[in-house]
Amino acid sequence: MEFKDYYRTLGIDKTASADDIKKAYRKLARKYHPDVSKEPDAEARMQEVNEANAVLSDPEKRALYDQVGSGQQAGQPFRPPPDWDAGFEFPGGGADSGDFFENLFGRGRSGRAGQFRMRGEDRHARIRIDLRDAYDGASRTISLRRPQADGQGRVVLQEHTLNVRIPKGVKEGQQIRLGGQGDPGIGGGPAGDLYLEIRFTPDPRYRIDGRDVYETVPVTPWEAALGGPIDTPTPSGPVTLQVPAGSQAGRKLRLKGRGIPGDPPGDLYVVLEVVLPPADSDSARRLYETMAREMAFDPRRTTGA
């Protein structure tokens, strides 16, 4: 276990007052706000900031941390001094003091177990899936750290691996609730639940709106003008699609029911993107010149130019 310097995480000194801690925390909570921050590692940083704040903003936990942490350097292997916990009555169920603190101090003592029963807290995690997984369903393995009782009746954080079924037809932002997979209860109370929020891995080919999926497909000018069948990949496999004659760039072709499955299923919209062949050879240039000469076409005629 490495020593974590919570003071450094919050950018404050060891003599900081409760008010300084609160100020430093708020400043960082704004900077690394997971919904707003543009910092690349905002979510991870916010977790560290929350962990540091949960300990330092609680006078009892802070005193314990200060006693154990004196003389330690961040990142160094850490061994608690003997009798580090003498004289402290540490309350159970600390909300979100972090991994390091809870590994060190546990989450409450066995002596309290008989005194009350409490349901474990619900936990939340985000899970990223591919669009394809929403079409077919899938299973995902996720690792979470959660508190478990060790031999001495102390609660320590342990890696907990779960295999979770991702149901077919799931949408971005939907939550999957796994009963009893949250924190264990205290004093024989039931475990909390685990909520998984679904996010799609960004895929440059597809844009998703609820159950509808949008896909841009490049076509040649003659395919757009004359129409005809084109082959295109879709999330549910390749399809042959009839491009109507006289299509312009941006035309949307709806493939009903080929969006994310459900009741009703979403639709797949193929958006045509007309790509011009480069005029990079004499023959290509001649073809463009022929069109310029023979086609009476002025796209700016109606723009008043």
Partner: peptide, 15 residues
């Protein structure tokens, strides 16, 4: 066991 595949309730189906 860790090899079991858990099937959760999809919120919106269950509220």
């Amino acid at each position: 066991t860790h090899d079991d595949i858990l099937t959760g309730a999809l919120l919106d189906d269950v509220c």
